[in-house]
Design a protein around this nucleic acid. Structure first.
Lengths: 343, 343
DNA sequence: CTGAAAGCGCTTACAG
DNA sequence: CTGAAAGCGCTTACAG
């Protein structure tokens, strides 16, 4: 039996290595952590012993000393909402590229849960990213006072953020719809705690005003396909001939329900979504949507957290809340929008 | 200025609390951790002080002592592959329900990366779940010797696992296709390191044999939409009139490419996927697919890891590799499959 | 270049 | 019920 494969649970420490290498534990630590500070011979001895015992340093013990966990948290409202997929992917890739581990958590669209989860993971992470947070500004600032926080799809004074510049995408969409003969455009809103939904609505209203169109706000029960279906009746009742939806899933739900009610899309009604999610081009007609570079948003958020970390060199606290990125949006025209029949 | 909002980075410890509560640090620890072992007065004192200082116990320090991290890792091949979404969701929900944090990591479909990532996160987790792992059996067993491992979509001797029972779903699919007049059925394979792909192919072959149909194996370049598109030519060349695809994304890619080549679906060719992913009903025609309860798979995997944890009571190492769950699959017939025109 | 000691923040027998 | 001490596994000045 090789002793290297001890029973599960046997923890190999630097002391074990020190013993068989015949050196002091502190020398083991050095040999492994800063090999250049140790003689070639010692290093070899230690490395051999470490390999033999299949040693893995405890990140916990190290973190306790260094104050760094090598982990960044990402909290999203709904882990299965495809709008977040690219963001998660972007953050995860950026974390891996920086030798960090990403912890993913979910808030179930609840501000209270979000705060609880954030508090829970904060002590074991170096910083956290909040995707479309539902908490209040002061709550976010309080978290940011403990460890670096970056918010995505929201702007909070004193906190690093990554937000889409919604203007270009929405302007394009309104011009596109206006040229298709649409005069009354409905906005199917997101959760009312959503900063981004408010921004999009504001922007739509102003774009409609500018082009002499009418903008209508239609609340929804949830930013899901079901939420879109349920809103369909109100949309039709409003007299709008086009709907801009807070996200693509909502848009797909709306389109399905309208089609079920024999409304032809886009001849009788145009549907435009947001986010260009996976599958948004699977529908018939394929969904027109306003896209934002979410992969980049996730990566940028991670780099902002990284930049806000206390400097490893001098330990000086870094500036926080100075960072901010605005990512451009654009319209992707597909089949679900176009000229209004007889419009 | 309230002193409760100290500058960032000021770490509040039980010593600070002990000082202002006028008790020993160990008493603080007890008051917070096992309140029943402390007098009501002391408890109140400590709780007040803790609240005042906005104290949060360091999970790192605690983990170092207890050996428990309160974290479970989940490694998937591709974080944006929708086949994994429900699995991730199920595991995440089950983790949260048990007061655990889920760490999500990605292996980029590479066995080497997978092993590296697993080793990296193992020390800071209590156990890990490997979704459709690409590593070798011995590598997985070695990981399992250190800390509990549960594999999903794979069976490894001595390791807990959750696998779909592919038989019912595939049998149904073959009967469905046979009754539609299909005699030659292609299987668009997954990665050749995929245990599940091998299983599905075996099962399809045996089901075809049983019903007197011909089964053909068509390799693909990747389990993605692009992989499906690229395989389309081979599929047609094979003379098959129906294709069972390793996953839905592959199936959607295949369907799109065939449609682009003016093949009418399902009149001239039937397409069946696996996994019933989000969006698989968005296509036209909607995708017929073989579904497995992935949310449940994720949750079950988490509970298996939990059960394999060393017993908190007596610290006795728990049995590992004894657990195993088989989850039933079923066919969801939608528009992409049916009777072969003139078949 | 290397050793001995102190300490990161907590928990847990052990006394009293 | 509470205090004093030891220890989890590592790192880092401080001597030599």
């Amino acid at each position: 039996m090789a002793k290297s494969s001890g029973p599960a649970g046997t923890k190999v420490t630097i002391y074990d290595i020190a013993k068989i290498a015949g050196v002091n534990p502190s020398t083991v630590s050095r040999a492994l952590g800063k090999p250049e500070r140790v003689s070639a011979k010692t290093r070899k001895l230690v490395e051999q012993a470490a390999a033999e015992l299949n040693f893995r340093a405890s990140p916990l013990a190290r973190s306790l000393l260094t104050g760094r966990t090598g982990t960044v948290g990402l909290i999203v409202a709904d882990i299965t909402n495809p709008s977040y997929f690219d963001m998660i992917r972007g953050a995860q890739a950026a974390a891996a590229a920086n030798g960090l581990t990403l912890v993913l958590a979910e808030s179930a669209e609840s501000a209270a849960t979000e705060l609880r989860v954030a508090r829970r993971i904060q002590p074991s992470t170096d910083g956290i990213i909040l995707a479309s947070p539902r908490m209040s500004d002061p709550e976010i600032r309080a978290l940011n006072a403990t460890k670096p926080v970056t918010v995505i799809n929201r702007s909070v004074a004193g906190v690093d953020s990554v937000v889409p510049d919604v203007e270009p995408g929405i302007s394009e969409a309104v011009r596109h719809l206006a040229s298709g003969g649409h005069r009354r455009i409905a906005f199917l809103a997101g959760p009312d705690t959503s900063w981004l939904s408010a921004r999009r609505w504001e922007c739509l209203r102003s774009a409609c005003e500018w082009t002499g169109r009418e903008a209508l706000l239609i609340p929804t029960t949830a930013p899901t396909a079901e939420g879109g279906r349920r809103a369909a009746r109100d949309v039709i009742a409003s007299g709008a001939t086009a709907g801009l939806c807070f996200n693509d899933v909502l848009a797909i739900g709306l389109m399905r329900e309208l089609q079920a009610a024999k409304v032809t899309i886009p001849d009788e009604f145009s549907v435009v979504g947001f986010d260009n999610i996976f599958g948004s081009d699977f529908t018939t007609p394929a969904l027109t949507t306003i896209a934002a570079p979410f992969t980049e948003a996730g990566a940028t958020a991670l780099s902002l957290v990284l930049a806000a970390l206390p400097n490893a060199d001098d330990g000086s606290p870094n500036v926080r809340g100075a960072g901010g990125a605005e990512l451009p949006t654009s319209l992707i025209v597909r089949g679900s929008s176009g000229r209004l029949l007889g419009g």
